[in-house]
Nucleic acid binder design. Structure first.
Lengths: 114, 114
DNA sequence: GTATAATGAGTAGAAGAACGAGGTATCGGC
DNA sequence: GCCGATACCTCGTTCTTCTACTCATTATAC
Protein backbone atom coordinates (compact mmCIF):
# COMPACT_ATOMS: atom_id res chain seq x y z
CA UNK A 1 0.00 0.00 0.00
CA UNK A 2 2.81 2.36 -0.93
CA UNK A 3 3.07 4.95 -3.63
CA UNK A 4 3.24 2.46 -6.43
CA UNK A 5 -0.25 1.17 -5.95
CA UNK A 6 -1.92 4.43 -5.09
CA UNK A 7 0.15 7.37 -6.23
CA UNK A 8 1.38 7.88 -9.77
CA UNK A 9 4.98 8.89 -10.19
CA UNK A 10 5.84 12.54 -10.38
CA UNK A 11 3.46 13.63 -7.68
CA UNK A 12 5.81 12.92 -4.81
CA UNK A 13 7.94 16.01 -5.39
CA UNK A 14 4.90 18.23 -5.40
CA UNK A 15 3.62 16.82 -2.13
CA UNK A 16 7.00 17.15 -0.46
CA UNK A 17 7.31 20.76 -1.56
CA UNK A 18 3.88 21.47 -0.17
CA UNK A 19 4.59 19.94 3.24
CA UNK A 20 7.90 21.76 3.52
CA UNK A 21 6.16 25.00 2.58
CA UNK A 22 4.11 24.76 5.76
CA UNK A 23 7.24 25.12 7.86
CA UNK A 24 10.67 23.55 8.37
CA UNK A 25 10.51 19.80 8.84
CA UNK A 26 12.90 16.90 8.67
CA UNK A 27 12.50 14.03 6.22
CA UNK A 28 11.10 11.49 8.60
CA UNK A 29 8.37 13.88 9.68
CA UNK A 30 7.46 14.69 6.08
CA UNK A 31 6.56 11.08 5.44
CA UNK A 32 4.56 10.88 8.65
CA UNK A 33 2.68 14.07 7.94
CA UNK A 34 1.82 13.03 4.38
CA UNK A 35 0.46 9.74 5.59
CA UNK A 36 -1.49 11.34 8.40
CA UNK A 37 -3.00 14.18 6.39
CA UNK A 38 -3.99 11.93 3.49
CA UNK A 39 -5.63 9.45 5.83
CA UNK A 40 -3.13 6.72 4.87
CA UNK A 41 -3.73 7.07 1.12
CA UNK A 42 -0.20 8.39 0.65
CA UNK A 43 2.53 6.30 2.23
CA UNK A 44 6.09 7.16 1.30
CA UNK A 45 8.78 4.51 1.83
CA UNK A 46 12.16 5.86 2.97
CA UNK A 47 13.81 4.54 -0.19
CA UNK A 48 11.63 6.93 -2.16
CA UNK A 49 11.65 9.77 0.31
CA UNK A 50 15.34 10.47 0.77
CA UNK A 51 16.35 10.30 -2.90
CA UNK A 52 13.48 12.66 -3.64
CA UNK A 53 14.69 15.08 -0.96
CA UNK A 54 18.26 14.99 -2.32
CA UNK A 55 16.93 15.56 -5.81
CA UNK A 56 14.97 18.61 -4.71
CA UNK A 57 17.96 19.90 -2.78
CA UNK A 58 20.27 19.45 -5.77
CA UNK A 59 17.82 21.30 -7.97
CA UNK A 60 17.92 24.18 -5.52
CA UNK A 61 14.28 23.90 -4.51
CA UNK A 62 15.00 22.91 -0.93
CA UNK A 63 17.71 23.91 1.55
CA UNK A 64 18.55 22.13 4.77
CA UNK A 65 20.18 22.68 8.17
CA UNK A 66 20.96 20.19 10.89
CA UNK A 67 19.11 20.97 14.07
CA UNK A 68 17.92 19.22 17.12
CA UNK A 69 14.40 17.82 17.27
CA UNK A 70 12.14 18.04 20.29
CA UNK A 71 13.12 14.49 21.10
CA UNK A 72 16.78 15.44 21.27
CA UNK A 73 18.04 13.85 18.06
CA UNK A 74 19.94 15.56 15.26
CA UNK A 75 17.84 15.87 12.14
CA UNK A 76 18.06 17.63 8.81
CA UNK A 77 15.41 20.32 8.64
CA UNK A 78 14.34 21.29 5.15
CA UNK A 79 12.96 24.62 4.10
CA UNK A 80 11.72 25.99 0.81
CA UNK A 81 13.96 28.26 -1.23
CA UNK A 82 12.59 31.10 -3.31
CA UNK A 83 13.00 28.90 -6.34
CA UNK A 84 11.23 26.09 -4.53
CA UNK A 85 8.25 28.26 -3.73
CA UNK A 86 7.94 29.26 -7.39
CA UNK A 87 8.19 25.61 -8.38
CA UNK A 88 5.49 24.70 -5.88
CA UNK A 89 3.15 27.28 -7.32
CA UNK A 90 3.81 26.15 -10.87
CA UNK A 91 3.32 22.50 -10.05
CA UNK A 92 0.20 23.18 -8.05
CA UNK A 93 -1.35 24.94 -11.01
CA UNK A 94 -0.15 22.15 -13.27
CA UNK A 95 -1.75 19.56 -11.04
CA UNK A 96 -5.02 21.46 -11.13
CA UNK A 97 -5.09 21.48 -14.91
CA UNK A 98 -4.18 17.82 -15.05
CA UNK A 99 -6.71 16.67 -12.48
CA UNK A 100 -9.40 18.55 -14.35
CA UNK A 101 -8.43 17.02 -17.69
CA UNK A 102 -8.23 13.48 -16.35
CA UNK A 103 -11.52 13.93 -14.52
CA UNK A 104 -13.08 15.12 -17.74
CA UNK A 105 -11.89 12.06 -19.62
CA UNK A 106 -12.88 9.61 -16.91
CA UNK A 107 -16.40 11.02 -16.81
CA UNK A 108 -16.93 10.48 -20.53
CA UNK A 109 -19.96 8.33 -21.25
CA UNK A 110 -20.33 5.78 -24.01
CA UNK A 111 -22.54 8.07 -26.05
CA UNK A 112 -20.32 11.09 -25.63
CA UNK A 113 -17.54 9.94 -27.87
CA UNK A 114 -19.25 8.78 -31.04
CA UNK B 1 3.51 20.35 -23.45
CA UNK B 2 3.54 16.59 -23.54
CA UNK B 3 2.92 14.00 -20.89
CA UNK B 4 6.24 14.42 -19.20
CA UNK B 5 5.68 17.99 -18.11
CA UNK B 6 2.04 17.68 -17.18
CA UNK B 7 1.02 14.10 -16.55
CA UNK B 8 2.55 11.85 -13.93
CA UNK B 9 3.70 8.47 -15.12
CA UNK B 10 1.25 5.65 -14.84
CA UNK B 11 -1.76 7.73 -15.77
CA UNK B 12 -1.42 7.07 -19.47
CA UNK B 13 -2.58 3.47 -19.12
CA UNK B 14 -5.70 4.56 -17.29
CA UNK B 15 -6.59 7.13 -19.94
CA UNK B 16 -6.03 4.66 -22.76
CA UNK B 17 -8.22 2.08 -21.06
CA UNK B 18 -10.95 4.66 -20.66
CA UNK B 19 -10.89 5.73 -24.30
CA UNK B 20 -10.92 2.14 -25.51
CA UNK B 21 -13.83 1.41 -23.18
CA UNK B 22 -15.95 3.86 -25.16
CA UNK B 23 -15.71 1.66 -28.24
CA UNK B 24 -13.13 -0.02 -30.49
CA UNK B 25 -10.49 2.40 -31.73
CA UNK B 26 -7.05 2.18 -33.28
CA UNK B 27 -3.95 3.65 -31.65
CA UNK B 28 -3.61 6.73 -33.74
CA UNK B 29 -7.21 7.70 -32.99
CA UNK B 30 -6.71 7.16 -29.25
CA UNK B 31 -4.02 9.82 -29.15
CA UNK B 32 -6.15 12.21 -31.18
CA UNK B 33 -9.18 11.66 -29.02
CA UNK B 34 -7.24 12.16 -25.78
CA UNK B 35 -5.83 15.41 -27.05
CA UNK B 36 -9.19 16.61 -28.31
CA UNK B 37 -11.21 15.68 -25.23
CA UNK B 38 -8.65 17.14 -22.82
CA UNK B 39 -8.52 20.39 -24.78
CA UNK B 40 -4.84 19.81 -25.63
CA UNK B 41 -3.75 19.30 -22.02
CA UNK B 42 -2.93 15.66 -22.74
CA UNK B 43 -0.74 15.08 -25.78
CA UNK B 44 0.60 11.59 -26.29
CA UNK B 45 3.69 11.17 -28.47
CA UNK B 46 3.78 7.98 -30.53
CA UNK B 47 6.90 6.84 -28.71
CA UNK B 48 4.80 6.66 -25.56
CA UNK B 49 1.55 5.51 -27.12
CA UNK B 50 2.54 2.32 -28.89
CA UNK B 51 4.68 0.87 -26.11
CA UNK B 52 1.79 1.54 -23.73
CA UNK B 53 -0.66 -0.24 -26.03
CA UNK B 54 1.63 -3.26 -26.33
CA UNK B 55 2.09 -3.30 -22.58
CA UNK B 56 -1.65 -3.32 -22.01
CA UNK B 57 -2.11 -6.01 -24.65
CA UNK B 58 0.58 -8.20 -23.08
CA UNK B 59 -1.04 -7.83 -19.70
CA UNK B 60 -4.29 -9.07 -21.19
CA UNK B 61 -6.17 -5.83 -20.62
CA UNK B 62 -6.63 -5.04 -24.31
CA UNK B 63 -7.25 -7.22 -27.36
CA UNK B 64 -6.87 -6.16 -30.99
CA UNK B 65 -8.02 -7.01 -34.50
CA UNK B 66 -6.93 -5.59 -37.82
CA UNK B 67 -9.75 -3.89 -39.63
CA UNK B 68 -10.25 -1.24 -42.24
CA UNK B 69 -10.79 2.38 -41.20
CA UNK B 70 -13.30 4.70 -42.81
CA UNK B 71 -10.42 6.14 -44.82
CA UNK B 72 -9.62 2.74 -46.31
CA UNK B 73 -6.42 1.96 -44.41
CA UNK B 74 -5.67 -1.12 -42.36
CA UNK B 75 -5.51 -0.36 -38.67
CA UNK B 76 -5.34 -2.26 -35.40
CA UNK B 77 -8.56 -1.78 -33.50
CA UNK B 78 -8.30 -2.27 -29.76
CA UNK B 79 -11.07 -3.37 -27.46
CA UNK B 80 -11.29 -3.91 -23.72
CA UNK B 81 -11.13 -7.43 -22.32
CA UNK B 82 -13.07 -8.46 -19.25
CA UNK B 83 -9.86 -8.13 -17.28
CA UNK B 84 -9.27 -4.72 -18.82
CA UNK B 85 -12.67 -3.51 -17.74
CA UNK B 86 -12.01 -4.61 -14.17
CA UNK B 87 -8.65 -2.90 -14.25
CA UNK B 88 -10.25 0.28 -15.56
CA UNK B 89 -12.73 0.31 -12.71
CA UNK B 90 -10.03 -0.32 -10.12
CA UNK B 91 -7.75 2.37 -11.51
CA UNK B 92 -10.58 4.85 -11.84
CA UNK B 93 -11.43 4.40 -8.17
CA UNK B 94 -7.76 4.62 -7.30
CA UNK B 95 -7.41 7.86 -9.21
CA UNK B 96 -10.40 9.28 -7.40
CA UNK B 97 -8.89 8.51 -4.00
CA UNK B 98 -5.57 9.95 -5.06
CA UNK B 99 -6.97 13.15 -6.53
CA UNK B 100 -8.92 13.69 -3.34
CA UNK B 101 -5.90 13.11 -1.12
CA UNK B 102 -3.62 15.36 -3.16
CA UNK B 103 -6.28 18.05 -3.26
CA UNK B 104 -6.58 17.79 0.49
CA UNK B 105 -2.84 18.22 0.98
CA UNK B 106 -2.51 21.07 -1.49
CA UNK B 107 -5.29 22.97 0.24
CA UNK B 108 -3.53 22.80 3.61
CA UNK B 109 -2.90 26.22 5.05
CA UNK B 110 0.06 27.26 7.14
CA UNK B 111 -1.95 27.07 10.30
CA UNK B 112 -3.55 23.76 9.49
CA UNK B 113 -0.51 21.61 10.05
CA UNK B 114 0.86 22.67 13.38
C1' DG C 1 23.16 -3.62 31.72
C1' DT C 2 21.39 -5.37 27.52
C1' DA C 3 17.99 -6.35 23.92
C1' DT C 4 14.66 -4.23 21.08
C1' DA C 5 11.83 -1.00 18.82
C1' DA C 6 11.31 3.53 17.11
C1' DT C 7 13.44 7.49 15.27
C1' DG C 8 16.36 9.51 11.76
C1' DA C 9 19.50 9.47 7.75
C1' DG C 10 21.34 7.31 3.87
C1' DT C 11 22.80 4.12 -0.48
C1' DA C 12 22.86 0.50 -4.31
C1' DG C 13 20.66 -2.00 -7.77
C1' DA C 14 16.75 -3.05 -10.43
C1' DA C 15 12.39 -2.14 -12.49
C1' DG C 16 9.29 0.42 -15.09
C1' DA C 17 7.55 4.35 -17.83
C1' DA C 18 8.07 7.99 -21.04
C1' DC C 19 10.69 10.41 -24.43
C1' DG C 20 13.02 11.73 -28.80
C1' DA C 21 14.35 10.21 -33.01
C1' DG C 22 14.31 7.33 -36.07
C1' DG C 23 11.94 3.72 -39.77
C1' DT C 24 8.02 1.68 -42.90
C1' DA C 25 4.00 2.21 -45.83
C1' DT C 26 -0.30 4.25 -47.94
C1' DC C 27 -3.17 7.96 -49.55
C1' DG C 28 -4.62 12.57 -51.45
C1' DG C 29 -3.43 17.14 -53.17
C1' DC C 30 -0.52 19.91 -55.92
C1' DG D 1 7.03 13.19 -58.38
C1' DC D 2 6.82 15.32 -53.81
C1' DC D 3 4.89 16.49 -49.45
C1' DG D 4 1.95 16.12 -45.54
C1' DA D 5 -1.27 13.38 -43.00
C1' DT D 6 -2.54 8.84 -41.53
C1' DA D 7 -1.10 4.55 -39.31
C1' DC D 8 2.09 1.39 -37.53
C1' DC D 9 6.48 0.26 -35.04
C1' DT D 10 11.33 0.11 -32.36
C1' DC D 11 15.68 1.52 -30.14
C1' DG D 12 18.39 3.81 -26.72
C1' DT D 13 18.37 7.15 -23.08
C1' DT D 14 16.73 9.30 -19.09
C1' DC D 15 14.07 9.75 -15.07
C1' DT D 16 11.57 8.20 -11.02
C1' DT D 17 10.50 4.98 -7.84
C1' DC D 18 10.94 0.51 -5.48
C1' DT D 19 13.02 -3.05 -2.65
C1' DA D 20 16.29 -3.99 0.43
C1' DC D 21 19.56 -3.03 2.74
C1' DT D 22 23.28 -0.14 6.30
C1' DC D 23 24.25 2.92 10.14
C1' DA D 24 23.55 5.64 14.44
C1' DT D 25 20.93 7.27 18.41
C1' DT D 26 17.38 7.23 21.95
C1' DA D 27 13.71 5.24 24.85
C1' DT D 28 11.64 1.39 26.75
C1' DA D 29 11.40 -3.43 28.41
C1' DC D 30 13.46 -7.02 30.76
Amino acid sequence: MNIKSDLPQGTLDLLILKIVALGPVHGYAIAQRLQQVSRDVVQVPQGSLYPALHRLENRGLLAADWKETETGREAKFYRLTRKGRAQLEAETASWGRLAEAVGLILRLSEGGAE
